[in-house]
Write a protein that binds this DNA or RNA. Structure first.
Lengths: 350, 350
DNA sequence: TTGTACGCGTTATCAC
DNA sequence: GTGATAACGCGTACAA
């Protein structure tokens, strides 16, 4: 394997000149540069990443901290990781995966002390997150995908749950729905401080109240059967229900199946809108599920590019980005009883 | 940040002794070791990974090569990556993600020349894969997840498509099915040399022929609508069909919906078995889908641990592992017309 | 515009 | 059992 020394000898220059020709930190004469280039080509030279890192004290490696299990946004997670890796590569960085159990937070300390990474992207941030606390005490640059309870001073990008829920409700209300229930995650998930659950429920309550509409929130485990049960109970308690906002894919599918079994038509009788989901999941249902899909790709890119800016000192403003889920209207949402076209015969009391 | 030098000074020994105390390459006196340990604790010393790599010429980094798009086994992919990262970490290695377009193979060359990684795991291997060719010409250790057309000399772990298909057919035949169709990926996918498509179709043909059963294979795009169309055409062409093996999740869901719409009961009239899938996807359907789930976790671990063995020279035998998908019997497969219990009234000709 | 020489923090090869 | 000290391959003042 050729080193810089080999190139220098072959080109008849000193190693430093080769180095400068490579980095461009200092001007190099045209003819010299050409000779060096020729030598590099001939030897198939590639700079040794490790030696470069040691000398420059910058590894161009970014660590992605992610909890082993609990891929809440599972569909989006792979998308996210892929986007992060691509964004990193485009800027000459590498992304190393740092799986870490939720308890073994000390691993985080090791990570930053080993100086293997120039910065850290933290995934699946919880409202109270010891990893974030630890990073905050260090000098290592980091960005969060998600938010802690108090994210003001921290670089973070997250789903705009507030706007997402608002968008979902808007979509349904505009379609003429008034009686809308929210099928959320399990209450355990909410109670444990899982950000998406907490924030969507708060938003749902707020926006429904704003509109003087009844607030119906149902927690549900992440299985199709639980979704069936939940749907059954919901329709019993609220027979006038015409729309469902969901954030629980397996339960959504179960609920839809139960709706059909009970003779309800989708979307003619009941509309279903799954938020923080993905078109891929939506494509599995029939009728095809209307979703609001999690911006996994955007968050991945944003987290990485912004971190790189911080590392390189070119960051203009702190990262405080909230991205709403994008509405992908498919076949499970349709006009409700108060739709403009059918105002004359609302289904309300039938 | 404390260095080895600081530790050496504080402990009153030389740097080399500290190094040996750390690596255990050479025996160190008990008292000396204790003093060194104390010094390290006091300073919060952690070895610098980069310096260590440069000196030892081993980075303890493994690169995971994965094509940006086309996550054929999308559900399993995240599982796979996670397992690989965990296995690596358990053995003191890091996993760096190397996204690479299918065309830009030269990136592979850069990867190995930069000497950033001690070895490479290649994901989503195609029957003819230029990345593999390139790696084969280098001295870099690598393992494949998947197989090329001629994998004999290469370390690889892959799904045992043959055994998977055999298992699927066995399951259905034992249930009393004889008229079984295979709903595969798109013909484009098969024609482009996508291993899973090619191998499953070959296996299906073989095992059905072995049993003197008719071979019905239907290619299908990866959408629910395509699945509906395919199902319709299949039932027209083969009205006696009682079971479906599928390897195409969206199409499977579409086909099931179409079955129900046409008044077929699942599994009473038609059984559905989705192979190379995952329980997570299966959980979305109702009745819950019987699947054969891709061994993403196993493959991830295997690829990494075996690669590490090769890197460290402790590999006993080459990696030639084929793991079948595990059958997860749920609610979409049931007795067919030739089931032992109902031999007296087969549905064949009704 | 180019060259010299030192430093980055370890490992590993000599000596003792 | 322990200490000097030369690599490892590159970046970067400082000199020229």
């Amino acid at each position: 394997m050729a080193t810089m020394n080999d190139v220098a000898k072959l080109a008849g220059v000193s190693v430093s000149t080769v180095s400068y020709a490579l980095t461009g930190v200092r001007p190099v004469g045209d003819k010299t540069r050409a000779r060096i280039q020729a030598a590099m080509d001939e030897l198939g030279y590639q700079p040794n990443a490790i030696a470069r890192s040691l000398a420059s004290r910058r590894t161009r490696i970014i660590a992605l901290l992610f909890p082993a299990i609990e891929h809440g946004l599972s569909g989006a997670a792979l998308e996210f990781v892929t986007a992060a890796a691509e964004a990193a590569r485009e800027q000459g960085y590498h992304l190393v995966l740092w799986p870490i159990g939720n308890d073994e937070v000390s691993e985080t300390r090791d990570l930053i002390q080993q100086r293997l990474a120039d910065g850290v992207v933290v995934m699946e941030v919880r409202l109270e997150d010891p990893r974030v606390t630890l990073l905050g005490q260090s000098t290592t640059p980091f960005t969060l995908i998600g938010r802690t309870a108090e994210p003001a001073g921290l670089d973070h990008a997250d789903i705009d749950f507030d706007a997402t829920v608002a968008g979902a409700i808007d979509h349904l209300v505009e379609l003429g729905h008034r009686s809308i229930a929210f099928l959320s995650r399990s209450s355990a998930s909410r109670d444990s401080g899982y950000g998406p659950a907490v924030r969507t429920e708060e938003a749902f309550e707020k926006y429904m109240t704003d509109r003087d509409l009844p607030v119906v929130i149902r927690h549900c485990e992440g299985t199709a059967d639980a979704g069936r049960t939940a749907l059954t109970e919901l329709t019993v308690a609220h027979p006038d229900l015409t729309a469902l906002v969901t954030m629980n894919d397996p339960a959504t599918f179960g609920a839809m199946a139960e709706l059909l079994d009970r003779g309800h038509r989708i979307p003619d009788d009941v509309s279903v809108l799954s938020i923080v989901s993905s078109p891929k999941v939506g494509a599995l249902s029939h009728p095809r599920l209307t979703t609001m899909c999690a911006p996994g790709t955007e968050l991945g890119r944003l987290g990485v590019t912004s971190l790189i800016e911080r590392i390189e000192g070119t960051q203009a403003a702190p990262l405080h980005e909230l991205i709403p889920c994008r509405l992908d209207v498919q076949a499970t949402t349709g006009p409700g009883p108060f739709a403009s076209g059918r105002l004359e015969h609302p289904q309300g009391g039938t």
